[in-house]
Amino acid sequence: MSAVAKTLDVKGLNCPLPIVKTAQAIKELAAGDLLEILATDPGAVPDFNAWTKSTGNELVEQSEEAGVYRFVVKKKG
C-alpha cells in the first residue's frame, strides 16, 4: 500500500463539514493519491461510503478506534 499523501483532521466537526473539507482536500491531490481522514462524527461513516460511491473515488480503508473514525480515500484516476 502506498503512503498517505495528506491527512485531513476533521475531528469535532459535524456533517456536512467532513465531506465538504474532503471534497476540497482531494482537489489538491493527484490521481491515485491517498487521502487519510480522521473524524469523530458517527454520521461520517454512511456519508463517506455514499460520497465515494457517488464521486468515483475509492474508499480503501475504514476503521474506528476510541471514537475516532479513520478513512483512507484513493483519488480516482
Binding site: 465531506i19 460520497w51 457517488s54
Partner: peptide, 10 residues
Amino acid sequence: SPLNRAFTIE
C-alpha cells in the same frame, strides 16, 4: 445538496 440527502439532519 452537499450530502447525499436533502438536509444534513437525517
